[in-house]
């Protein structure tokens, strides 16, 4: 991929990532995040990782972002009431982030490698499947188990248990003495 295309997609990714953290409304943040992820998937395709790039677009933009949007809509968060100042946190946070950028920049900018010339099958589904179902077979099975556990856990955490409605606002764990003690302490 030429430097021009890289510069375009990279600038798009950085600007929209800044949009995610700077905008008030969560829905606008989400749209900016979609732009970031699409730009990144374009960069991956440009690097030759075609299958992964398209998976990125399908899984993240198609599935995970819809889940985010659904939750924002469910919680009725279109308007963010605004966040109080906390200037100290923002100030020191900015310094820490600037230091992080400088450190990583110093590491990476002198990386001596240039992209290898690879065959046209690099990044194809064939090549990935060969690896996943041979060298990474155990990890693949563990990942499927993890997804199952995550689905069961998400349903268990998010569902309404009997008695949830009875609790007045803010009285978390009214039926659990330990939590009540922690609250008083």
């Amino acid at each position: 991929m030429g430097v021009g295309v890289f510069a375009f997609l990279g600038t798009l990714a950085v600007i929209s990532a800044l949009g995610v953290i700077l905008q008030r409304s969560p829905v606008h943040s989400l749209l900016a995040l979609v732009a970031t992820l699409l730009a990144l998937s374009g960069l991956m395709i440009g690097l030759g990782a075609v299958a992964i790039g398209f998976l990125q677009a399908i899984v993240y933009v198609g599935a995970i972002m819809v889940l985010f949007l659904f939750v924002i809509w469910l919680l009725n968060l279109q308007r963010d009431p605004g966040e109080p100042g906390r200037l100290a946190v923002k100030f020191f946070g900015a310094i820490a982030v600037a230091a992080l950028v400088a450190e990583l920049f110093a590491f990476f900018v002198r990386a001596p490698m240039s992209p290898m010339e690879t065959s046209s099958s690099y990044g194809s589904v064939d090549r990935l499947a060969d690896l996943i179902f041979s060298r990474y077979l155990v990890a693949f099975e563990v990942a499927s188990l993890m997804l199952l556990v995550a689905v069961v856990g998400a349903v268990a955490v998010a569902r309404r248990w009997p008695g949830d409605e009875a609790r007045p606002n803010g009285a978390v764990g009214a039926d659990r003495p330990v939590l009540q003690q922690a609250r008083r302490a």
Binding site: M1, G2, V3, F6, G10, A13, V14, L43, L47, L100, V101, L104, F105, F107, F108, V109, R110, A111, M113, S114, P115
Partner: peptide, 12 residues
């Protein structure tokens, strides 16, 4: 070809 360090800096 774009050097790999560009991608690493963008990731950082």
């Amino acid at each position: 070809m774009t050097p790999v360090s560009y991608y690493l800096v963008l990731g950082a």
